[in-house]
Design a binder for these strands. Sequence first.
DNA 1: CGTTCCCTTGACACCGATCAACTCTGGTGG
DNA 2: CCACCAGAGTTGATCGGTGTCAAGGGAACG
Lengths: 280, 280
Amino acid sequence: MRKGDVGTCRFDASRRRKIAPSPLVTKLRRGFPLTDDDARALLGLCRDTRVVHDGRDVIAERERPDHVHLIVDGWAARYKLLHDGSRQITAFLLPGDIDDLHANLLRQSDHGIVALTPLRVAFVAPDALEQLMTSRPGVARALRWSMLVDKAILRAWLVNVGRRDAKARVMHLFCELRERLVVLGFAKNDPAPFPLTQEEIGDALGLTPVHVNRVLQRMRADGLIVLHRRLLQVRDFDRLAAAAGFSAAYLHAVDAALPAVRHLAGVAIGAGDACRQACR
Amino acid sequence: MRKGDVGTCRFDASRRRKIAPSPLVTKLRRGFPLTDDDARALLGLCRDTRVVHDGRDVIAERERPDHVHLIVDGWAARYKLLHDGSRQITAFLLPGDIDDLHANLLRQSDHGIVALTPLRVAFVAPDALEQLMTSRPGVARALRWSMLVDKAILRAWLVNVGRRDAKARVMHLFCELRERLVVLGFAKNDPAPFPLTQEEIGDALGLTPVHVNRVLQRMRADGLIVLHRRLLQVRDFDRLAAAAGFSAAYLHAVDAALPAVRHLAGVAIGAGDACRQACR
DNA sequence: CGTTCCCTTGACACCGATCAACTCTGGTGG
DNA sequence: CCACCAGAGTTGATCGGTGTCAAGGGAACG
């Protein structure tokens, strides 16, 4: 499906310079207070860290999941294949993202995880995780919160693919990824790493690479983004978010990324003030 | 958006006759052994059972979730609204289905839940649930399994909307719902309750009601289904599943509904024998 | 017995898929 | 060091699946 890796080394280096030591801890703290002890305990899970090459599977579809996978560095994608050979990406996994908790309860994985860049993944033993969660309720709550956010993102993706046209889909994805990258410590207005190929974007959004290309051309022409050499710079986030109908609420970040555009859907729902808040 | 209810009483009655006392227990036992004590304990959660009328919200978008909701009887839908007024349904909730576990960890719900038929819902206090899960590890594991299955279904929906054409989407949805209804005790080849309007089907699949109608006409003409008066009979499940590319694996039911069509995607993945197994 | 959903049907428009080249870039090997 | 090569991006022409708009029919409820 894909294999090439281009400039990923430079890409890697630039990320390491900027990111906080543990992306997982950084991410969780956006949603949940975590004591330093809890944070340290989480770091202990990364004992068994392995490197997965660009384009290789971390876990394949139908394989029995015997570990929980935690992305330490690089980008990965959850995907499912159809019998006609097409692929649907159901999630992009960034540093700090985790595979399904307790996935070992299932006989076989219903999806694969593939490395989109050179990847560092921590393989966590389910027992160790379980033990940590019982001994440290704070960690347990934080990880459960993280799983809820994953699910919320998945719902947002379904909405995106089901109810928006191609242009809005791409824009919404870019908004989401930018918000998630900001949480990881990238500045809001600087170019951020963006290693996705147009084919991968298409596989995530239910579009063909050809059409993704056309949409990107348009977005560049409109001055919304600069996307070049695996770096993405969002020039006008507010306009992008407005056009995409993006609302950061579903990411459930507490104070970090404030909702950019909160739409009032139908009947008034209160929380009117927040609607005027724009992201930075 | 919708409000009418048609024939739901008859519909209700026929379901009660057939279903095991607790749909939740029935469902969980498909994935997990549950002792009788555990099952009884689960029933204890249904103390506070409320009725929600057809078309009303169980919980609205942006509301703070202060209960976990368990569907006792009737159908409901998770949905999100867009600012242009369109709606995307992200899940159909059948008896035994639960709202997100630990959703109370979130400040506000990122989606609403609406009753599609007259509904009986158990409002479970988060504390009571938490307590039950700590005191009964078996229950905890079963509920976590259930959450994983929910997520797997969500991924399957994304694949459906992202990568299949309208006809296959409808067929895939029907296959999934049939499998889930079978778990609830409906016979595989008998008509089963199916209260969805064509608009609701469209909102779940990213289609317009008009087009859903045309697809259904076609499926009827092809002898695949009989859908009439809120009853659905699948005439030729194998053919339906094959045309939809449906594989029941993602439902993670242990022995109940065997995979209908298991597709081999690209490279051989092993488990070759299972590929020939058809459902019933 | 009228009203209200919901379903149905037809004509037409358009977004995005498909097919097929061609370019550009970075990496590889002679 | 240069030539080649593979993968990604780009562009144009054409086609088809779905959306849209509009009108009418049928069943259940009050």
